[in-house]
């Protein structure tokens, strides 16, 4: 019953609401600042303003999947349910930002490269990563037993993360062996500050989302455990 008491102890602190409000204010401020102050790029014109949402979304997606990897491994190591629920929360948030990254990449690619999609290594790896984590979330929704779901999704999450560099390498070779890779234009230092502030703001949003999603998972588990206990107690 120790586990039950622990799971039921779902904190609903006001501090996290405050944190969420702060995260959104920070995002709005960073975006307004970046959009208003950034000069038009020599080649891209105002189009580079898309990068202030696209690049942070891509970074945050990688960060969220890193969290999935770390907590999946930790779950396999120590077997604590909390780690599994946190990994699941990060996976869902990561997949959301991953989808956003792909769509924003297309919106950038159409005017900048003239095509909605190019088989660039980074772009393609992002898509494969998206498919891997769609599979991860599908697996979770198809397995009912919590212990089994945790073990299996920890393995799938860890394997998926291990695969990412290999996918990247393979797509890079696949591409470069056929045609010369267009190197992304080097970033002007004037934009670096805007990118950084936006990335930090996105990170705060990500932390807030993962936290809330984690709270949700804990609450659901706690409700399940109460129902189980009631069923076992017999009335």
């Amino acid at each position: 019953m120790n586990e039950t008491a622990d799971t039921m102890n779902v904190p609903r602190s006001r501090a996290w609401t405050l944190f969420g409000v702060f995260a959104f204010v920070a995002l709005i401020a960073a975006q307004v600042h970046a959009v208003l102050t950034s000069p038009a790029d020599r080649d891209m014109g105002h189009l580079q303003k898309i990068l202030y949402v696209h690049v942070p979304a891509a970074w945050i997606m990688s960060l969220a999947f890193l969290v999935v990897f770390v907590f999946s491994i930790r779950y396999m190591w120590r077997g604590q349910e909390k780690d599994d629920l946190l990994a699941a929360a990060a996976a869902e948030v990561g997949a959301t930002f991953n989808g956003l990254t792909l769509v924003l990449g297309m919106i950038w690619g159409k005017p900048a490269w003239g095509a909605w999609w190019v088989w660039d290594p980074r772009v393609t790896t992002t898509l494969v990563l998206f498919m891997i984590f769609v599979g991860y979330l599908a697996l979770r929704s198809f397995v009912d037993d919590p212990e089994r779901r945790a073990q299996w999704s920890a393995a799938v999450g860890a394997f998926g993360a291990i695969n990412v560099p290999i996918v990247y390498m393979s797509v890079r070779w696949w591409r470069t062996l056929h045609q010369i890779q267009s190197s992304p234009s080097t970033m002007d230092s004037a934009y670096v500050l805007g990118l950084r502030t936006n990335a930090i703001a996105f990170m705060l949003i990500m932390i807030y989302f993962i936290r809330r999603r984690y709270e949700l998972a804990r609450l659901r588990r706690a409700t399940e455990l109460i129902a189980d206990a009631a069923a076992l107690g017999g009335t």
Partner: peptide, 8 residues
């Protein structure tokens, strides 16, 4: 395109 990106 920029508007669409921010809206999405």
């Amino acid at each position: 395109f920029i508007g669409a990106a921010y809206a999405i």
